[in-house]
Computed example of a mutant assay.
Amino acid sequence: MGGWRCTGLSWPHDAPVLRWARGEGTGPGRTSVLAYGKELGLRAEGERHCVGARGNLCPLGAVVPVRSTGARCAECARLDRAHSVAADTIADDPRTYRVYLAWFGPGLVKVGITGEAREAARLREQGAVVFSWLGRGPLMAARRTEELLRAALGVPDRIPYARKRAVRAELPGSAERATEVEELYRRAAALEGAGWPEALERLPFDPVDHVGVFGLDGVSPAARVVTGLVDGGVVSGRLVAAAGPDLHLETVDAGIVVLDTRLITGWDLVASGAREGTTVPVVAVGGGGVQDGLF
C-alpha cells in the first residue's frame, strides 16, 4: 500500500470497506473490502494530514492531531459541517429522509435521521446492533420528529463510541435485543397527533439485527483500544469483528484490540506483517482517551 493515504471506512453493503487515496491527492482512489478471519497489518508513516472537506483536498495540507477522530483542520471541519444534514443548513433539500430508532446495547438507544437513498448504510456506520425505521418524509419533517422524540421521550441523538464498545461482548439474545427498540417504537408512535409532523409517514416496526453482519456472535471481549497512531507504529492482527468504525483485531501480544478507523484517516499507511504485534498507544476498553466526533 505504499504511497496510499486512508480516507476512512464505510459500510456500503454487509462488509466493511477501507477507502484509500494517493498520498499526494492525485489519481483515482481504491478500496479494500475487509473479511472476518483474515489477517491485517498496517504501519503508519510520517505525519497525519487533514483529509479535506466535501471531496476537496485541504488547501493547507495541514497536520492534524493523532488522537482526534475528525482528521480535519479547523477550516475544513467548518466547511464540512456547513454542508451536513446535522447542521440544519439545507432547509430546501428535496430528498426523502428516514427517521430511525437504533439500539447499541442494554440501555443504549438513540433516534436519528438518514437519507432514504443510503438505505441502512448509516446504521452500520454507527455500529447499530438493532434498528427499526420509524418514518419517512422531507428533511424538515424528519428533523422535527427527531427533536420531538428527544424532548418527549428523553432519547439522545448521540451515544459515545466508548459506551458502545463496552457492551458488545455481552449482548443478550436476539429477542431481547429487539425488545427495547420495539418499546421505544411504541412510545414514539403514541406521539402521533401530539406534535408529530403531518408530512412524516410512519413506517411499520421491522427490526433489523446486525449481530451477524458485524461478526459479534461469540466475540471475545476487547481488552484494549487504540488511542492514536505514531510514525512507524504498527497495528496488526486477525479481524474477528467490526461494528461502525471499529475493527476488532485478535493480536499476538495484546489480546483483542479495537482499532477505531477514524483514527487512521489522514495517515499514509503501508502493509506490515499481521503478526508484528501492536506498537501504537492503547488503553483499556472503557479507559477513555479517544476524542469522539459529532456522531
Rank of each mutant, 00 (worst) to 15 (best):
S174I: 13
C76R: 03
L134R: 02
E119T: 14
A190V: 08
I113N: 01
P156M: 05
G212P: 06
S236R: 06
P221G: 03
G255D: 03
E39W: 10
V234T: 09
G8P: 05
R124C: 00
R118C: 08
R177Q: 15
K164G: 06
K38D: 13
P156V: 05
L249E: 05
E180M: 01
L249T: 05
D260I: 07
C50K: 08
I113W: 06
A91P: 10
I256F: 02
R118N: 14
A194W: 11
R275E: 13
R122E: 03
G135K: 02
P59R: 11
A102W: 01
G286N: 12
G154F: 07
P207A: 14
E170F: 03
V111F: 05
W196I: 10
P94T: 08
V208A: 11
W4I: 00
E125Q: 13
R224C: 05
E276R: 15
R168S: 02
R95D: 09
E47Q: 15
E24R: 14
D157M: 08
Y97G: 12
M1R: 11
T227G: 10
Y185D: 00
L184P: 02
L42R: 08
R165E: 01
Y97N: 07
G135N: 11
G289L: 13
Q126W: 10
V208W: 01
E276Q: 15
K110D: 08
S236I: 04
A74Q: 09
R224G: 02
P160D: 07
D260K: 06
P94F: 12
A142W: 04
D231N: 11
V51E: 00
C73T: 04
S68G: 14
H49F: 13
P160S: 09
A15G: 02
P106G: 14
G115T: 04
C6G: 05
H49I: 06
A241F: 02
R5S: 04
T227H: 10
W103F: 12
A271P: 10
P197N: 13
R122P: 09
R78P: 00
G233K: 06
A274P: 13
E75K: 10
R168A: 05
I256W: 01
A166N: 04
A87R: 11
R48A: 04
A44G: 02
A87E: 11
L108I: 12
V109Y: 01
R168Q: 08
L148W: 10
V167D: 00
P59I: 13
A128G: 14
